[in-house]
Amino acid sequence: MHDLAPQLFALLFAAAFLAGFIDSIAGGGGMITIPAMLIAGIPPLETLGTNKLQSLFGSGSASLAYARHGHVSLREQLPMAAMSALGAALGAILATVVPGHVLKTVLPFLLVAIALYFAVKPSLGDADKAQRMTPFLFSLTLVPAIGFYDGVFGPGTGSFFMLAFIALAGFGVLKATAHTKFLNFGSNLGAFVVFVLYGAVLWKVGLLMGAGQFAGAQVGSRFAMKNGAKIIKPLLVVTCIALAIRLLADPAHPLRVWLGW
């Protein structure tokens, strides 16, 4: 892995920049970085571990950008981020006993459902709505559950956090985006620690891609803050559908195997 050709390092940096830009707005950056690393010849386990390292830079960069502009208080959200990290760490540890084929089968349809929710609900905007769940209950249930999913599998984590914040916490679209990034940072950190203990992180590749993620997230978060719901909503819809299509395009997807496609 230390002998990757320069053009492959350039490809990985560019992929990380684009992923950081998209992830800071709508999530789904993993559908860019993971295939890029696999194409570069990095083994699957090291790809997952290294992806968590470089994702830390993107989610951390976006979190700082949103916090600097007053869209989220990182100090107040720290307990919630810690719950997300705990859930992700448990997910990464228990990944071998969780039925991954079930997640792979169901996930594309969940992503399409999220896309439809944001596409057809005209009232979604940047203004906050009434809460349907207390912050305490939200922190103890949904946050670690989504973090656990990120540790086990990962794709679409940001979309699930966004949906939870908007539908249950009553947040506006921009505020939900800002709060999602720090929880994503927590889940990335929790899973990353586990992958480090398993020796599944390529530091040189991860730090290079992390620089791309950091820069892309800075650009993307500023773009989101400038345009708000009018850009976040359509990009979230497109990202969810694109991720669902990419998952279903895999010949090894359980549904395709079952149907014989």
Rank of each mutant, 00 (worst) to 15 (best):
V112K: 09
Y198D: 15
A89K: 02
M209T: 04
F17P: 02
F148Q: 00
L163T: 03
G147I: 01
I146E: 00
L124A: 07
F192G: 00
V152R: 02
L140D: 04
I241P: 02
T180D: 01
L38W: 12
A26F: 07
I42C: 08
G206V: 06
P99D: 10
L11A: 12
F185Y: 07
N184S: 14
A16I: 08
G70A: 10
Q77M: 15
A115D: 04
A16D: 03
A191W: 01
T105R: 08
A211Y: 08
G147F: 00
L103F: 09
Y66I: 06
M37S: 04
L236T: 05
L259N: 05
V72A: 10
P43R: 09
A215C: 13
A88K: 02
K129E: 14
G30Y: 02
P234G: 13
A89G: 10
T141V: 13
G190K: 00
G87V: 01
V173N: 03
P155C: 12
C240D: 04
S221P: 05
T239Q: 09
V238Y: 11
M225R: 03
T157V: 06
P122I: 11
F136T: 14
L107W: 04
N188Y: 07
F223N: 06
T134A: 14
F57V: 04
A249N: 13
L243P: 02
I114M: 13
R132S: 12
V106R: 04
Y198P: 07
P135K: 04
R75V: 13
Y198R: 15
F171C: 09
V173H: 00
A88I: 01
D128S: 14
V219C: 10
G170T: 01
S24F: 04
E76S: 15
R222T: 09
K175V: 04
F214S: 04
F21V: 12
V72N: 01
T157C: 04
A19W: 01
